[in-house]
């Protein structure tokens, strides 16, 4: 996945900008801050989420962090590979380490999301 094409939240999630079912995950910076990820608690496919809702928990040996929905919509698919190998998030946060696919319901905008450059700048602030 090409990082430069993704949209980011202030709370370190990313989502694909276009498409029916858009992948989302956590940023390289987020996985680095958490350290070795040992478990991910994913929602069930079919769950409706609102933008900003906690819907995933990512757990490292010393912390468990919430992931917030970057857009409102329905979770249409979850990355089942993470069940056996949650460290994929550390290895490839924008690729094999994706978390879920969300089908946006159009009720939440993307104006407050950042592109890769803006997100990178925000980390340096």
């Amino acid at each position: 996945m090409d990082e430069s094409k993704l949209l980011f939240t202030k709370s370190h999630e990313w989502i694909e900008p276009e498409g029916e079912a858009r992948r989302c995950g956590i940023s390289a910076h987020a996985q680095e801050m958490l350290g070795d990820i040992v478990f991910v608690e994913l929602p069930e496919a079919g769950r409706k989420v609102s933008k900003g809702e906690e819907f995933i928990i990512v757990e490292s040996p010393k912390a468990a962090a919430d992931v917030y929905a970057p857009l409102s919509g329905e979770v249409v698919e979850v990355n089942e590979a993470l069940e056996g190998d949650p460290a994929l998030i550390n290895k490839d946060p924008y690729g094999e380490g994706w978390l879920v696919k969300i089908k946006p319901d159009g009720t939440s905008g993307t104006d407050d999301l950042m592109d890769a450059r803006a997100y990178k700048d925000s980390l340096e602030e």
């Binding site: 906690e54 912390a63 468990a64």
Partner: peptide, 11 residues
Amino acid sequence: QTREQHIRRDK
């Protein structure tokens, strides 16, 4: 223990 109160607080 990561799901306990001293780490997860209200969650």
